[in-house]
Amino acid sequence: MANLKLSIVDQSPVHDGKNQAHALNDSINLAKLADELGYHRYWVAEHHATPAYASSAPEIVIGQIAANTKQIKVGSGGVMLSHYSPYKVAEVFKTLAAFHPGRIDLGVGRAPGGSESSSIALAYPHNPSSSDHYPHQLEALTAFIDDYQFEKQHPFSDLTTTPMGGSSPELWTLGSSDGSIELAASMGLGFVLALFIGTHERSADIIKRYRKLYRPRTGSAPQLGSAMIASAVIAADTKEEAEFLAASHTYWKVLAFRHGAREEVKPPETCLDLMKKLSPSDQAYFHETRNSIITGTPSECRARLEEQASYYDVDEVMVVAVTHSFEKRCDSYRKLAQAFNS
Rank of each mutant, 00 (worst) to 15 (best):
K212V: 02
L213Q: 04
L213M: 08
Y214C: 05
Y214T: 01
R215C: 07
R215W: 01
P216K: 13
P216Y: 08
R217Q: 10
T218E: 13
G219Y: 15
G219D: 10
S220L: 07
S220T: 06
S220A: 11
A221S: 07
A221V: 05
A221E: 08
P222A: 12
P222K: 08
Q223D: 07
L224F: 10
G225D: 04
G225R: 12
G225I: 12
G225P: 15
S226W: 02
S226I: 03
S226L: 04
A227H: 03
M228F: 13
A230Q: 02
S231D: 04
A232K: 05
A232W: 05
V233H: 06
I234F: 11
I234H: 09
I234L: 13
A235C: 06
A236V: 05
A236F: 04
A236R: 02
D237W: 07
T238P: 00
T238I: 14
K239R: 13
E240I: 06
E241A: 12
E243P: 11
F244I: 04
F244K: 06
F244W: 08
L245M: 14
L245I: 10
L245V: 06
A246R: 14
S248Q: 13
T250I: 12
T250E: 11
T250K: 13
Y251W: 10
Y251A: 06
W252Y: 15
W252V: 07
K253G: 14
V254S: 07
V254L: 07
V254T: 08
L255Q: 11
A256E: 13
A256C: 12
A256P: 14
F257T: 14
R258K: 13
R258E: 11
R258I: 03
H259K: 12
G260W: 09
G260I: 06
G260P: 02
G260Y: 11
A261Y: 10
R262S: 06
R262D: 01
E263I: 13
E264N: 07
E264Q: 09
V265D: 05
K266A: 15
K266M: 14
P267T: 01
P268G: 03
E269L: 04
E269T: 09
T270S: 10
T270C: 12
L272A: 01
L272G: 02
D273F: 06
D273I: 09
M275G: 13
K276E: 15
K276A: 15
K276I: 00
K277M: 09
L278Q: 09
L278N: 08
S279N: 02
S281F: 03
Q283V: 02
Q283S: 01
A284P: 03
A284H: 01
A284M: 03
Y285V: 00
Y285W: 00
Y285A: 01
H287Q: 02
H287E: 02
H287R: 01
R290S: 01
S292N: 14
S292V: 00
T295D: 11
G296F: 00
G296M: 01
G296W: 01
T297S: 14
T297F: 12
T297A: 08
E300C: 02
C301V: 05
